[in-house]
């Protein structure tokens, strides 16, 4: 836990430490070399993303002849085809219908449970905490197959609520662990003072404590949203019928059906990753910080 607490407070945008002092010529050469290297690495990193954009924006004829040449023609045809014929408009809607409720469930339930595990002791709490912790250790693989038959037997297989609940349950172990760390950091004096003033335990939780962990809830929201948006196995396994297919499994099915249709496939890939890139562009700090603190879950 020590780690989580310290890492979370690290300001990743803090000014870097003073660099070495040397001759100004040497410094300049070092500076240029460093940046040249970084530019090359950065180009290598975003190259595949540029490739998706380039292939999406080609004319269908050009895709057939020269699928991966960079920006050699321009048309919206592939995007239109993916959106309408490829049903990516449906997939996008389904992704939202899956991700938003499951993320909301994770945030609400984890915050509640995290508060209990941090500040409301009762007999048996430790045992329950270990059960939640077990969820962090056991990979989804281990129980995904029995879960399939369990969902089938109670009629939740191939339904939106079924997939939403499974996705939410996947995030709750980590979310609880994460929120507990935030609540544990708050000083005891706060709740004691509120208690003296006559606040009930529930009021202390909602009015005093909750506002103080808002940053933690924000990071958890972004983190969980991305995890659920990108989740591939849950829709692949538990939404086999195809009427509720989200972007990830929809994109996968699209590759199986017509592997030669590279243009619309590129467009579908772009539709899948674009919301993530936009989200990241606006919330890059929350995303990276969420992932850094999220890393401790191992």
């Amino acid at each position: 836990m020590t780690n989580l607490a310290t890492i979370r407070k690290v300001d990743i945008d803090a000014p870097p430490p003073p660099t070495m002092r040397g001759g100004s010529k040497r410094k300049r050469g070092l500076f240029l070399g460093k940046h040249a290297l970084l530019v090359i690495l950065a180009l290598g990193t975003i190259f595949p993303i540029l490739l998706v954009i380039s292939t999406t924006l080609k004319t269908p004829q050009d895709v057939r002849v020269n699928p991966f040449g960079f920006f050699s023609s321009f048309s919206w045809d592939n995007l239109v085809a993916a959106w309408t014929v490829g049903k990516f408009s449906d997939y996008l809607l389904n992704s939202i219908l899956l991700t938003v409720p499951s993320t909301a469930i994770v945030i609400v339930f984890s915050t509640m449970a995290g508060y209990t595990f941090a500040r409301l002791p009762f007999r048996g709490r430790t045992v329950l905490f270990y059960l939640v912790l077990l969820g962090l250790l056991v990979p989804f693989f281990t129980y995904m197959i029995p879960l399939y038959y369990q969902l089938r037997s109670i009629g939740l297989l191939d339904t939106l609520p079924g997939a939403i609940l499974v996705m939410a349950s996947l995030g709750i172990a980590f979310g609880t662990f994460f929120m507990r760390a935030f609540f544990s950091d708050l000083p005891v004096e706060l709740e004691q003072a509120a208690r003296v003033d006559g606040a009930s335990e529930f009021q202390i939780f909602v009015k005093i404590m909750l506002p103080l962990v808002r940053s933690g809830m924000g990071a958890l929201t972004v983190f969980t949203f991305l995890a659920n948006w990108n989740n591939f196995l849950v829709p692949l396994l538990y939404l086999p019928g195809g009427s509720f297919r989200p972007l990830t499994s929809g994109l996968y099915m699209f590759t199986g059906g017509r592997s030669l249709d590279i243009g619309p496939l590129a467009a579908g890939t772009l539709i899948t990753i674009l919301p993530i890139i936009v989200l990241f562009a606006f919330l890059q700090k929350q995303v990276t910080e969420g992932f850094i603190s999220g890393a401790v879950k191992g």
């Binding site: 339930f109 449970a113 209990t116 939640v132 129980y143 349950s169 609880t176």
Partner: peptide, 13 residues
């Protein structure tokens, strides 16, 4: 506060 989370963990995990 803990019941909803425990139900999810119990039933789906």
């Amino acid at each position: 506060l803990i019941i909803p989370a425990m139900i999810m963990v119990g039933f789906f995990f």
